[in-house]
Write a protein that binds this DNA or RNA. Structure first.
Length: 502
RNA sequence: CGGGGCGUAGCGCAGCCUGGUAGCGCACUUGGUUCGGGACCAAGGGGUCGGAGGUUCAAAUCCUCUCGCCCCGACCA
């Protein structure tokens, strides 16, 4: 039987990058666009983002946040009001300098020379500046606090090298920006949001993450401190999946965001900002997918189950489709995202492979034999238990009337199995390391390395230069443990995570 | 911006070294047999060989220039 594609795809092999792109393109999640560095998100990919939005938005609202929207364009001068901020973003800003085109000699158009903007506008790389300019107007009293806003938007960062979903010139994200009366309160917010991100990653995406603090060199430009969640991809590299920043009073001072407290004294607000982006979709793909294609966690899959009818002739087709249609209705009424693949132009085998490639968590096969006994055959995209001897795929015959409850259980099992598998994968590739030479050798194979660190930027830089690994985070949940810095031998209070990253 | 690779049918590629007027697989169309893991047989349709210039009787093939894409690196809340 001829395979559709000769080229093998290997999640953990040398062609990991190619494998990843193959999945994105073949599962029709996204495509390259005419604009270099930007991607087109296709309906199947966008559905994942919508599911992400729904889930996160629910959690934000539960904790008192509301959505708003601020302009795409930011006056150039705004960016430079906070010194570290401008330094961090100046190198990757798209700048709008004209507001009109005019016909060019010899055809075509060009920016009209007489339409130069008085002040150039930058396309937002993030919205701290434009939002806080408004916060300064809106906040007057401690009674106006806390201000808890979130915005779903696109941002542009002119990165030198891009990769579908993981780092694109334009990307979609959510950015929350809050203002508080005290540092205690704002820090609580930072942690509250980081917890939401971790919960979403683990409970919805089934991607285990480590919560921690960024080092001085890795923190957000303009923040006091940056917290993050870090995940491990199937090539052993780390991916920062979300950040939550303690901005202190840095931006409040730069933008004059002040309030009068109960005693009538003017104080600068304590602020936070936090965000996750479409990069999460990349994380999802890289964490779970396999050589068969995309693997989606049931909680995020818009199509949770596909019904594939099997028949030999027109009479059989009518009979099977009747049962299959009733089954689909029953499942949809029970709240599942169900699709019935009625196509008569491709074989069942073709459908099996195609839906597996698209990552649909469960397939239900229904053929004449099943109709006779009022049943169907359930096949999960990934096994939820160890396969028996000689068993290629986990299959289970299910009476039609029990299909919803069996499906419910199967989807739950898949969700759990994916998380367990990803967690085991990470734990198998996480090691304590105390010898720098040993570390330099083993980092080549990927993985997380727990090493002591004295806290100096010099040691951090040296590791980066010599191993291409970076300090991913100082984990919150790591036990205090005195030791010697991996690099310089200086005093260290706890182990931190070193890894190569995306 | 450096290093490497690639532009030939909708997709994936061969042909180039050694010039002779374009081919394979998939997809597509038609007919038939199939259909519980990517079906088979037969007959078809489809190409400015990325672009420009040069060499030559003759260029996908050789030379020069150019445009674009991908990978690695530099860069990256």
């Amino acid at each position: 039987m001829a395979k559709r594609d000769e080229k093998a795809i290997t999640p953990r092999g040398e062609d990991y990058s190619q494998w990843y792109q193959d999945i994105v393109l073949k599962a029709e999640l996204a495509d390259y666009s005419p604009v270099k560095g930007c991607m087109v998100i296709r309906p199947t990919g966008y559905a994942l983002w919508e599911a992400t939005q729904r889930a996160l938005d629910g959690m934000f609202k539960e904790t008192g946040h509301v959505n708003a929207y601020f302009p795409l364009f930011i006056p150039m001068s705004f960016l430079s009001k906070e010194a570290e901020h401008v330094e961090g973003f100046a190198k990757e800003c798209a700048v709008v300098t004209h507001h009109r085109l005019s016909a060019k000699e010899g055809g075509g158009v060009e920016p009209s020379p007489d339409s130069v903007l008085e002040e150039p506008l930058i396309v937002r790389p993030t919205s701290e500046t434009i939002m806080y300019a408004m916060y300064a107007k809106w906040i007057r009293s401690y009674r106006d606090l806390p201000l808890l806003l979130n915005q779903w938007a696109n941002v542009v960062r002119w990165e030198m090298r891009t990769r579908l979903f993981l780092r694109t010139t334009e990307f979609l994200w959510q950015e929350g920006h809050t203002a508080h009366a005290t540092h205690e309160e704002s820090w609580e917010e930072v942690v509250r949001i980081l917890d939401i991100y971790a919960r979403f990653a683990q409970e919805w995406m089934a991607v285990p993450v480590i919560k921690g603090l960024k080092s001085e060199s890795e923190k957000f430009a303009g923040a006091l401190q940056t917290t993050c969640i870090e995940a491990m991809m199937q090539d052993g590299k780390a991916l920062q999946a979300g950040t939550s920043h303690d901005l202190g009073q840095n931006f409040a001072r730069a933008f004059d965001v002040k309030f009068q407290d109960e005693k009538g004294e003017w104080q600068h607000c304590w602020q936070t900002s936090w965000g996750v982006s479409t990069r999460l979709i990349g994380a999802l793909i890289m964490a779970h997918s396999d050589d068969q294609g995309l693997v989606l966690p049931p909680r995020l899959a818009s199509t949770q189950v596909v019904i594939v009818p099997i028949y030999k002739d027109d009479a059989g087709r009518a009979r099977v489709l009747e049962s299959a249609g009733a089954l689909k209705s029953r499942l949809m009424e029970a709240g599942f995202g169900a699709v019935l693949d009625e196509r008569d132009t491709v074989s069942p085998g073709f459908k099996f492979n195609e839906w597996e490639m698209k990552g649909v968590p469960v397939r239900l096969e229904i053929g004449p034999r099943d109709v006779d006994q009022g049943a169907c055959v359930a096949v999960p995209r990934v096994p939820t238990r160890d396969l028996r001897e000689g068993e290629k795929r986990q299959k289970e015959t299910v009476p039609l009337e029990r299909a919803p409850e069996v499906l419910r259980g199967l989807l739950d099992d898949i969700q759990k199995a994916l998380f367990a598998r990803a967690l085991a994968f990470r734990e198998e590739r996480t090691w304590p390391v105390d010898d720098y030479a040993d570390f330099r050798e083993r980092i080549e194979g990927g993985g997380f390395f727990l090493g002591h660190w004295c806290g100096s930027g010099d040691c951090e830089t040296r590791v980066k230069d010599e191993t291409k690994a970076t300090l991913r985070c100082i984990p919150f949940e790591a036990p205090a443990e005195a030791g010697k810095c991996l690099v310089c031998g200086g005093e260290s209070p706890r182990r931190v995570i070193w890894a190569r990253a995306y």
